[in-house]
Deep mutational scan, measured.
Amino acid sequence: KVILLEDVKGLGKKGDVVEVKDGYARNFLIPQGLAVEATKGNLKEL
């Protein structure tokens, strides 16, 4: 699961917690600054 930092077409809006494949999160969303891993600490910051 990841928390979206920006609106991502076809996935969700900023602040949404979405389930995506590990590779998509690690190789695209997180490096592009579009999402962060949905850890307990990150979820509390919402």
Rank of each mutant, 00 (worst) to 15 (best):
1 K>A: 10
1 K>Y: 07
1 K>R: 12
1 K>T: 11
1 K>D: 05
1 K>C: 11
1 K>S: 13
2 V>Q: 01
2 V>M: 09
2 V>F: 11
2 V>W: 09
2 V>S: 01
2 V>N: 01
2 V>E: 00
2 V>A: 02
2 V>C: 09
2 V>G: 01
2 V>T: 02
2 V>D: 00
2 V>Y: 10
3 I>S: 03
3 I>C: 05
3 I>N: 02
3 I>A: 04
3 I>Y: 06
3 I>F: 05
3 I>T: 06
3 I>E: 05
3 I>K: 06
3 I>V: 10
4 L>F: 01
4 L>E: 00
4 L>C: 01
4 L>A: 00
4 L>M: 04
4 L>P: 00
4 L>Y: 00
4 L>D: 00
4 L>I: 02
4 L>K: 00
4 L>G: 00
4 L>N: 00
5 L>Q: 07
5 L>Y: 03
5 L>P: 01
5 L>I: 11
5 L>T: 07
5 L>W: 03
5 L>M: 10
6 E>V: 13
6 E>D: 11
6 E>G: 09
6 E>F: 12
6 E>R: 12
6 E>K: 12
6 E>Q: 13
6 E>A: 11
6 E>C: 10
6 E>M: 14
6 E>T: 15
7 D>G: 05
7 D>K: 05
7 D>A: 09
7 D>C: 12
7 D>V: 05
7 D>T: 11
7 D>Q: 05
8 V>L: 08
8 V>I: 10
8 V>T: 03
8 V>A: 02
8 V>M: 09
8 V>E: 01
8 V>C: 07
8 V>S: 02
8 V>P: 00
8 V>Y: 05
9 K>A: 14
9 K>Q: 15
9 K>L: 13
9 K>S: 11
9 K>P: 15
9 K>F: 12
9 K>C: 10
9 K>V: 14
9 K>H: 13
9 K>Y: 14
9 K>I: 14
9 K>W: 10
9 K>T: 12
9 K>D: 09
10 G>Y: 09
10 G>C: 15
10 G>V: 03
10 G>K: 05
10 G>E: 07
10 G>N: 12
10 G>D: 09
10 G>L: 05
10 G>P: 04
11 L>C: 06
11 L>K: 02
11 L>S: 02
11 L>I: 11
11 L>D: 01
11 L>A: 03
11 L>F: 07
11 L>G: 01
11 L>M: 06
12 G>R: 00
12 G>Y: 00
12 G>C: 01
12 G>N: 00
12 G>M: 00
12 G>I: 00
12 G>T: 01
12 G>K: 00
12 G>Q: 01
12 G>D: 00
12 G>V: 00
12 G>E: 00
13 K>V: 08
13 K>S: 10
13 K>T: 08
13 K>I: 11
13 K>P: 02
13 K>R: 11
13 K>F: 10
13 K>A: 13
14 K>C: 08
14 K>N: 04
14 K>H: 04
14 K>P: 03
14 K>V: 07
14 K>Y: 04
14 K>A: 10
14 K>Q: 11
14 K>E: 04
14 K>G: 04
15 G>M: 05
15 G>V: 00
15 G>E: 02
15 G>P: 00
15 G>H: 08
15 G>Y: 09
15 G>L: 05
15 G>K: 03
15 G>D: 05
15 G>W: 11
15 G>N: 08
15 G>S: 04
16 D>L: 06
16 D>A: 11
16 D>I: 04
16 D>S: 09
16 D>M: 10
16 D>W: 09
16 D>R: 04
16 D>P: 00
16 D>H: 06
17 V>H: 06
17 V>L: 11
17 V>K: 05
17 V>T: 08
17 V>E: 07
17 V>P: 02
17 V>F: 07
17 V>W: 08
17 V>Q: 06
17 V>S: 05
17 V>D: 02
18 V>G: 00
18 V>Y: 03
18 V>C: 06
18 V>Q: 02
18 V>A: 04
18 V>M: 07
18 V>N: 01
18 V>S: 01
19 E>R: 09
19 E>A: 11
19 E>G: 09
19 E>I: 13
19 E>Q: 14
19 E>H: 12
19 E>T: 11
20 V>R: 01
20 V>E: 02
20 V>H: 01
20 V>L: 05
20 V>C: 07
20 V>Q: 02
20 V>T: 07
20 V>Y: 02
20 V>D: 07
20 V>K: 00
20 V>M: 03
20 V>W: 01
20 V>G: 02
21 K>Y: 10
21 K>P: 14
21 K>L: 14
21 K>V: 13
21 K>C: 13
21 K>D: 09
21 K>Q: 12
21 K>T: 13
21 K>I: 13
21 K>N: 14
21 K>S: 14
22 D>F: 08
22 D>M: 07
22 D>G: 08
22 D>L: 08
22 D>A: 11
22 D>R: 07
22 D>C: 10
22 D>E: 12
22 D>K: 08
22 D>N: 09
23 G>W: 13
23 G>V: 10
23 G>K: 11
23 G>L: 08
24 Y>L: 09
24 Y>I: 09
24 Y>M: 06
24 Y>P: 03
24 Y>A: 04
24 Y>D: 05
24 Y>W: 10
24 Y>H: 07
24 Y>R: 03
24 Y>Q: 04
24 Y>E: 08
25 A>N: 05
25 A>C: 08
25 A>L: 11
25 A>W: 05
26 R>I: 11
26 R>C: 08
26 R>S: 11
26 R>G: 11
26 R>Q: 14
26 R>H: 12
26 R>W: 12
26 R>K: 13
27 N>T: 10
27 N>K: 10
27 N>Q: 12
27 N>A: 10
27 N>L: 10
27 N>H: 11
27 N>R: 10
27 N>C: 12
27 N>M: 09
27 N>D: 14
27 N>S: 13
28 F>W: 09
28 F>G: 08
28 F>L: 13
28 F>M: 12
28 F>V: 14
28 F>Q: 12
28 F>S: 10
28 F>H: 13
28 F>K: 06
28 F>R: 06
29 L>K: 00
29 L>A: 01
29 L>I: 02
29 L>H: 01
29 L>P: 04
29 L>V: 01
29 L>W: 02
29 L>E: 02
29 L>T: 01
29 L>D: 02
29 L>G: 01
30 I>Q: 02
30 I>Y: 11
30 I>G: 04
30 I>S: 02
30 I>F: 12
31 P>D: 15
31 P>E: 15
31 P>T: 15
31 P>K: 14
31 P>W: 13
31 P>V: 15
31 P>R: 12
32 Q>I: 05
32 Q>W: 08
32 Q>F: 10
32 Q>D: 10
32 Q>Y: 12
32 Q>A: 14
32 Q>C: 15
32 Q>E: 14
32 Q>K: 12
33 G>M: 07
33 G>W: 03
33 G>L: 06
33 G>F: 07
33 G>R: 07
33 G>V: 02
33 G>Q: 07
33 G>I: 02
34 L>P: 01
34 L>F: 08
34 L>R: 05
34 L>M: 11
34 L>Y: 05
34 L>A: 04
34 L>H: 04
34 L>E: 02
34 L>K: 11
34 L>Q: 06
35 A>G: 06
35 A>S: 02
35 A>I: 02
35 A>D: 01
35 A>P: 01
35 A>Y: 01
35 A>E: 01
35 A>C: 04
35 A>F: 01
35 A>V: 04
36 V>Y: 05
36 V>P: 01
36 V>H: 05
36 V>W: 03
36 V>N: 04
36 V>L: 09
36 V>T: 07
36 V>R: 07
36 V>A: 12
36 V>F: 04
36 V>S: 06
36 V>G: 03
36 V>K: 12
37 E>N: 09
37 E>A: 13
37 E>Q: 11
37 E>R: 09
37 E>K: 07
37 E>S: 09
37 E>P: 13
37 E>V: 13
37 E>W: 12
37 E>D: 10
37 E>Y: 15
37 E>M: 12
38 A>N: 06
38 A>P: 07
38 A>D: 07
38 A>Y: 12
38 A>R: 03
38 A>F: 09
38 A>G: 05
38 A>V: 05
38 A>L: 07
38 A>Q: 07
38 A>C: 13
39 T>G: 08
39 T>D: 07
39 T>F: 04
39 T>V: 08
39 T>K: 06
39 T>E: 06
39 T>A: 06
39 T>L: 07
40 K>A: 14
40 K>D: 15
40 K>H: 13
40 K>Y: 11
40 K>C: 14
40 K>S: 11
40 K>V: 14
40 K>R: 06
41 G>K: 15
41 G>Q: 12
41 G>S: 14
41 G>V: 14
41 G>M: 07
41 G>T: 15
41 G>I: 13
41 G>H: 14
41 G>N: 14
41 G>W: 01
41 G>C: 14
41 G>A: 15
42 N>V: 06
42 N>Q: 08
42 N>G: 07
42 N>E: 07
42 N>Y: 03
42 N>R: 12
42 N>C: 08
42 N>D: 12
43 L>I: 08
43 L>P: 04
43 L>N: 13
43 L>A: 05
43 L>F: 06
43 L>M: 05
43 L>G: 08
43 L>Y: 05
43 L>Q: 04
44 K>Y: 02
44 K>Q: 14
44 K>E: 15
44 K>R: 08
44 K>H: 15
44 K>W: 03
44 K>M: 12
44 K>A: 14
45 E>I: 06
45 E>W: 05
45 E>S: 09
45 E>M: 03
45 E>T: 03
45 E>F: 03
45 E>Y: 04
45 E>H: 10
45 E>K: 06
45 E>V: 02
46 L>K: 15
46 L>N: 15
46 L>P: 15
46 L>R: 15
46 L>W: 02
46 L>H: 15
46 L>G: 15
46 L>A: 15
46 L>D: 15
